[in-house]
Amino acid sequence: MADEHFRLRVAHAKSGRLRFLSHLELTRACERSVRRARLPFSVTQGFNQRIKMAFGPALPVGTASTAEYYDVWLDSYVPAEEALARLTGATPELVGPAEAAFVPLRAPSLAAALTIARYEVILEGGERAADVLESELGAVVADGTFAVEHKGKSKVFDLARTLPKEPQVRSVEGRVVVEMTTRMGEHGSLRPDALVVAAIERSRSGATVMSVTRTGLFIEDGDGFRTPI
């Protein structure tokens, strides 16, 4: 097979109305933009040949992002800026690429390396409640564990491990904005809005979640978090 391979890492968005795409829909859209960009992509060996790509952790339907990533393997070299320009011209703008860079062939997979996610949850209504919400969020966190019901199953998160940072609450233009950083584990990741909704219920502020955006995905190493590009 080809002796030389290159592994291009692409950062892209999931924004506007395309936040309603599912993970599968988004990954297929990315594959098709790589084909349309006519990058010299590698093809997997085996019975069912596919374009060789790998994706980061899934986002739920309805959650937007400014920091999604995929890797695509290439059989020949294309300068990263050129690849980015070609991808930009071949991708619907709302899921368009923002950055592209080569990473070592042996770098750990995105799925394994990306363990930290940062989110921004914007609320609507209950304007007066920024400080109330902050203290209620603090109380939820102080419980130490948080249980989530999903498809009839209950999942319990250890919050000391799941929340490497305290959630931050601020007011922006009259709206309450919660910034939250979570650590994703083998047993799934905590949806930030679930925690916020629990705090809203305790605060009885009548606020509702207007939007959830993933604003960062990070690799955790020794003394901090770094982006994958």
């Binding site: 395309l18 349309r36 071949a90 619907p92």
Partner: peptide, 19 residues
């Protein structure tokens, strides 16, 4: 239309913006 989409199945049916 947008506020209705959070509560329906497979909202990708209604969002347009495909290639």
């Amino acid at each position: 239309v947008e506020p209705l989409l959070a509560a329906v199945e497979r909202p990708a049916r209604y969002v347009d913006h495909e290639w």
